[in-house]
Amino acid sequence: MLDTTFSHLPNTPGVGYKPQHYSEILEAPGPVSWLEVHAENYMGDGGRPLAQLGYLAERFPISVHGVGLSIGGEGALDKDHLARLRTLCDRVKPASFSEHLAWSTHDAHFLNDLLPLPYTATTVARVADHIKEVQNHVGRRMLLENPSSYLWFDESTMSETDFLFQVATASGCGLLLDVNNVFVSATNLNMDARAYIDAFPVEKVGEIHLGGHDEDEDEHGAPLLIDSHGREVVDPVWALYDYTLAKAGPRPTLIEWDTDVPDWPTLRAEAERAAAALAAV
């Protein structure tokens, strides 16, 4: 009988699970020792997606990562969606559950993107209340992920790191630190990425994300990086990851590659690079 209880993610590499890698993950996982799935892709009633996930969940710790809850939304959380998350978590018994600091639903319209919000005392209270509701419904603590930012709200009164610290303190949630998002946001808003890591409450970090981004520039000629998850992690992000590990210690680290998904050896090579960085801490 397999041990099917994974209470936490190990401090080793994981990857975002793609069905085309199913057989190779089972046969040649390399250093990949846990998997993350987007919750919304496993909210059907049955069929292959849930069968594959059930099989994998008996062999790997699973991280359930929501992309559609709209925790930063002005309106109430979608009760049906909370119930679906609960059903999925009860079924998979994930080692970790996480969602984004973002909104995606307004007036019953779901926009399928992680949209930004201003950082104020009002939004701290709203996001913290939503997270408490999520944690009560799903029955477990969640991790909240920092976003990729492309613009700034003039009404914001605090930094993103202050905002995340206050939300985590008020709600009791942990944090998911996406190092690529830090690099993207810092470049786009002309801030110091290492200063962001220095200010981040790393003791609350339960997971790290790494992924690829695209490069563009805005109408003023300033660099504009776009979080695409469609290519390798770039060297400056690996360097920022090393810097983060030196401050935070080893943490479960996910390679995200969601568009133009590569073959398994290419994705596994990214995980091997993360494994080497983790081993060097």
Partner: peptide, 20 residues
Amino acid sequence: GLSDGHGKTAGKRFDVYRNN
């Protein structure tokens, strides 16, 4: 009310969300 964080307009930055 949206900018690049340093006083400049956020035209193309907002378009990232439109495009996404």
